[in-house]
Simulated scan of single mutants.
Amino acid sequence: MDTVFIDRFHAITRPGHHRSTLVRRALAAALVLVALGSMLLDARSADPLVLTFAAPVPAGAVLTSADLAAVRLPAAIVPEGALTEVAQAEGQILAAGAAPGEVVTATRLVGPDLFTALVAEEPPGEAFTMVPVPLAEPDILPMLRHGARVDVIGEGPAIVAAGGRIVTVGEAGTVLVLLRQTQAAAVAAASLTDPLTVVLSAG
């Protein structure tokens, strides 16, 4: 083994055709590696730049730049409505809790896109609006999830509003519910005098 190594070392260090061939092969191999690296970099730079969550963020949180990160992902796995700039998400309210690495989409934030997604299958009628509902029985909070359909219950018990959608679940015992405008007004008025709660609804 030592003799072979010495012979190759001499072949490289001594002038001649053999050394030139070895040098050319080494340069060719280096150029191939550089070309492959360049192709990989070009392919990576062609991927779209999208926002992801940089850390766990709870539902109802107001997003800051520290919660967000811009990364490049293959176009095939970027969801529809993905946001691309920090300014699009900073200061917005997160509707449902997020984990690090998840892509930030418009439907994850409280706003028109989220409303459209929540009411996409609702029949035509009165416009929707959001109303905060302070719950008299916060024990139900762990059962509530973004998008869940609920009825708002007042004293009696009586149904104050039916068929609402949970937008966010706050940690202070208040939920944000999407309702038709007339029902939202009734809930807002009832919350001033009556203890309210919500129950999960199937319809």
Results as ranks from 00 to 15, higher is better:
M130A: 15
L196G: 06
S20A: 15
D139F: 02
A127K: 08
G91N: 10
G203P: 06
T13D: 00
V119M: 00
A120M: 07
Q183G: 15
F128L: 04
E80F: 06
V71N: 04
G97Q: 09
T197M: 00
R14C: 07
A66C: 07
A98F: 02
P56T: 04
V62G: 15
A59C: 08
V198L: 02
A59T: 13
R165I: 01
V86R: 15
P58W: 09
R149S: 09
L41Y: 09
L176K: 05
A161G: 09
V133T: 03
T3V: 14
A30R: 14
A59W: 10
T174K: 02
T105V: 07
E137K: 04
L141Y: 05
L36Q: 09
L41I: 08
L27I: 14
M39T: 10
F9C: 09
V62K: 15
P112I: 14
A148T: 06
V133C: 04
A158M: 05
P100I: 04
L141S: 05
A35S: 09
A69M: 14
S45E: 05
S20W: 12
A190F: 07
A82D: 03
F9E: 07
P112C: 13
E171S: 13
R8A: 13
T107A: 08
T129A: 08
R108N: 11
P56F: 00
H10P: 02
H18D: 14
L49T: 12
T193E: 15
R24W: 12
V110D: 06
G37S: 05
D7E: 12
A189C: 11
P195G: 00
M143L: 11
I153L: 02
Q183C: 10
Q183P: 10
R165Y: 07
E80S: 10
V131W: 05
V199G: 06
V119P: 01
G125Y: 06
G156C: 01
E155W: 03
I93N: 06
T105F: 07
P112Y: 12
L51R: 02
F128D: 04
I140V: 15
A190I: 07
A87D: 14
T107H: 08
V133Y: 03
A158L: 06
V199M: 07
L118D: 01
A11P: 00
F115P: 05
D113A: 15
A99L: 12
L49H: 10
H17G: 09
I166N: 00
P123A: 03
G16D: 10
M39W: 10
P124V: 10
T197G: 04
L36T: 08
